[in-house]
């Protein structure tokens, strides 16, 4: 059941803390996040970073899997266009991201819940500000409610 131990409505009744899964590329954004650490910048603790070698490795299924398992937001970080450690992986990411966004839209997942940002190894400040910004925006949206109504009812019944 994992996060479904609490129904979305119950989750929002308690103070809602968004859960955000991040996929950072090893060469730019992951390094920038490390730099944010060595620079002792402070940001919201809601993000869980998963390291991949290139943002091009981020399979749209990863994003869908994260949403399916209770993420309220997904943040993909890669090198700036033209700066990819693997020459052009980030362009592939961007291409997929556009398609993925359409799928998410059709599923009723709000635009702000899935974000792609180019953050170079030097841009620790952007890691900080993007995370804070995203956490605030997702917090305003509230928990992601993906369960069809019938299931929710049964889940509540079970909980009762």
């Amino acid at each position: 059941m994992r996060n479904r131990d609490l129904t979305p409505s119950e989750k929002s009744q308690a103070t809602f803390e968004p859960r955000i899964v991040a996929f950072f590329c090893n060469w730019c954004t992951y390094l920038a996040a490390d730099l944010a650490g060595t620079s002792r910048m402070k940001y919201a603790p809601n993000v869980r970073v998963i390291r991949v070698m290139c943002s091009g490795r981020v399979d749209p299924q990863f994003v869908l899997d994260a949403f399916a398992h209770g993420a309220d937001g997904v943040f993909i970080g890669g090198c700036h266009p033209g700066d990819c450690h693997y020459q052009e992986g980030n362009y592939k990411t961007l291409r997929r991201f556009h398609l993925l966004k359409r799928v998410l839209q059709q599923m009723g997942i709000e635009d702000e819940r899935c974000r792609l940002e180019w953050i170079s190894a030097a841009e620790a400040e952007r890691v900080r500000s993007t995370i804070n910004d995203m956490v605030e925006k997702v917090r305003a949206l509230g928990p992601l409610d993906l369960i069809p109504t019938e299931e929710k009812v049964s889940a509540e019944e079970v909980a009762v």
Partner: peptide, 27 residues
């Protein structure tokens, strides 16, 4: 880089140390 892994429609490409299942478990 793993770009082909993410792009393979049949899931027949995998990346050492970054296999789909490993990342799904992490997520």
């Amino acid at each position: 880089c793993g770009t082909c892994v993410a792009g393979c429609p049949s899931g027949s490409i995998q990346q050492n140390f970054f296999e789909d299942e490993e990342i799904f478990e992490e997520i």
